[in-house]
Simulated scan of single mutants.
Amino acid sequence: MGHDLYMNILTGMFLFWNGARVLTYVPTIVRLVCAPTDARSHSLLTWLCWVLSNGTFALMLLERNDGVPEAMFWLNALFYM
């Protein structure tokens, strides 16, 4: 797989998962506002979207900096783990 194809796939995943993350905010906010909440107020799908979004963002940051990790990379990578 060439680097250009890899970057296209990574960019597509980044856009998809960040879009999905934004969409998962809506039901979560509605549930938090309308009902008594606890840890079950966040669905597994919501957490999965957030984790995948942060993971792809960390990879994008690493690629954009020629493989040199920076503070934003570590912030997203550690949240990903």
Rank of each mutant, 00 (worst) to 15 (best):
M1R: 01
M7Y: 00
L10P: 01
T11C: 02
G12D: 06
G12Y: 01
M13A: 13
M13I: 08
M13N: 09
F14M: 02
L15Y: 07
L15E: 13
L15S: 05
L15W: 08
F16G: 00
G19D: 06
G19I: 08
A20H: 05
A20C: 13
A20Q: 07
R21K: 11
V22E: 09
V22R: 08
V22Q: 07
L23S: 12
T24Y: 11
Y25D: 12
P27C: 09
I29K: 10
I29M: 13
I29V: 15
V30T: 15
R31T: 13
V33D: 08
C34N: 14
C34A: 15
P36R: 12
T37F: 15
T37Y: 14
T37R: 12
D38L: 06
A39D: 10
S41L: 04
S43Y: 06
S43N: 05
L45Q: 08
T46M: 11
W47F: 12
W47H: 10
W47I: 07
S53Q: 05
N54D: 08
N54R: 10
G55A: 02
A58H: 02
M60K: 08
L61S: 06
L62F: 07
R64L: 12
N65Y: 06
D66R: 10
G67H: 05
P69S: 04
E70N: 14
M72V: 08
F73L: 01
F73Q: 02
L75M: 09
L78Y: 09
L78N: 04
F79Q: 02
Y80E: 04
M81L: 12
